[in-house]
C-alpha cells in the first residue's frame, strides 16, 4: 500500500524526527494558517514558503522528489477547481487554490514523514483530542493492513480459480459480485481482527496505546516549535512588506 513509504520515512533519524510530536503539530498548524490566510503577493509568498518546506525536508533527510510527488496527490481535486476557475475567467484564483493546497499537503507530509503515526496520535492526545477517537484511529490504521492483506489473498484466490484478479478494482464483474466480495472481505477481516484483539488482551491491553519513547517536552522542542512556527510568519511578513 502507498502509505507504507511514509511509515518507513517516519522511522528515520534526524533532528526533525527526534522532536516531540506536539512541537511539530504546533509548527504545522501555524504553517497551515499562514498559507490559508494569505491573499496578497502569493506569487512571491508561495515560492518563499516552498523554499522553507524544502529546507525542512532537507533537514529531516527526506527524499525530496518522493515528498514532492506525494504532495501532488492533492492535484486531481484541486486541478478540477483550477479548471473551473479558468473557465469562469479567473485563472489567477485557480492557480492560487492549486498553490495553497499543494503547500499545505507538503507541510502535512513533512510532519507525518518525520513522526510515526502512533507518536503523532499520542501527540494529539496530549493536545486534548478525545482518547476514544484516537484509539479508534490506531485500530483503524492497524486493521487497514489486515484488510488489505485479506483483500490480496481473496484476489489471489479468485485469480487461481480463473477470475481475473484485476476484477476487484476495475469494472468487469457484476455489481452483485463486488458487493458479495465486500461481504466476504468483511467476514474474514472481522475474524482476523478478533484474533488480533485477543492477542492484545492477553498481553494486558486495557484500551490505551503506550509509547516506548519517553515524551518529555525538552527545551530543544520548545526552541524547535518557536523557530518552525515563526519561520513561515516571518517569510510572509517579509514578502508582504517588500512586495505589497
Amino acid at each position: 500500500m502507498r502509505h507504507v513509504i511514509l511509515e518507513r520515512w517516519s522511522r528515520g533519524e534526524s533532528c526533525v524526527h527526534r522532536r516531540d510530536p506536539r512541537a511539530k503539530i504546533v509548527a504545522l498548524i501555524t504553517f497551515l494558517a499562514v498559507v490559508a490566510t494569505a491573499h496578497r503577493a502569493l506569487a512571491w509568498l508561495a515560492p518563499g514558503l516552498l523554499l522553507l518546506l524544502l529546507a525542512g525536508l532537507v533537514l529531516a533527510k527526506l527524499p525530496l522528489t518522493g515528498a514532492l510527488v506525494r504532495a501532488a496527490l492533492v492535484v486531481p481535486f484541486t486541478g478540477v477547481f483550477a479548471l473551473i476557475c479558468w473557465f469562469a475567467g479567473e485563472p489567477a484564483l485557480g492557480l492560487r487554490l492549486l498553490a495553497k493546497s499543494y503547500l499545505s499537503a507538503l507541510a502535512v507530509i513533512w510532519v507525518v514523514a518525520t513522526t510515526p503515526l502512533p507518536a503523532l496520535l499520542n501527540g494529539f492526545e496530549m493536545t486534548g483530542v478525545p482518547r476514544f477517537l484516537l484509539v479508534v484511529c490506531q485500530f483503524l490504521y492497524r486493521y487497514l493492513f489486515v484488510i488489505s492483506e485479506e483483500a490480496q489473498h481473496m484476489s489471489k484466490a479468485a485469480a487461481a480459480r480463473g477470475t481475473a484478479a484485476r476484477n476487484w478494482t476495475a469494472p468487469g464483474p457484476s455489481f452483485r459480485a463486488a458487493a458479495g466480495a465486500l461481504g466476504v472481505l468483511f467476514a474474514r477481516s472481522y475474524a482476523r481482527a478478533g484474533d488480533i484483539h485477543r492477542a492484545m488482551l492477553a498481553r494486558g491491553f486495557d484500551g490505551r496505546f503506550l509509547q516506548l519513547h519517553s515524551e518529555n517536552f525538552r527545551p530543544a522542542d520548545t526552541a524547535f516549535a518557536l523557530v518552525a512556527s515563526l519561520a513561515p510568519v516571518a517569510v510572509r511578513l517579509t514578502v508582504e512588506r517588500v512586495v505589497g
Binding site: V135, V136, C137, Q138, F139, L140, Y141, R142, Y143, L144, V146, I147, S148, A151, W168, T169, A170, P171, G172, P173, S174, F175, A178, A179, A181, L182, L185, F186, S189, Y190, A193, I196, H197, M200
Partner: peptide, 19 residues
C-alpha cells in the same frame, strides 16, 4: 477494535470500484 475494524473496512471499501 470493532469500530476501528469497521472504519478500516469502509476505508478499504472506498477503494473498490462498483461497475
Amino acid at each position: 477494535p470493532l469500530l476501528g475494524l469497521m472504519g478500516a473496512f469502509v476505508f478499504a471499501a472506498q477503494l473498490i470500484n462498483f461497475p
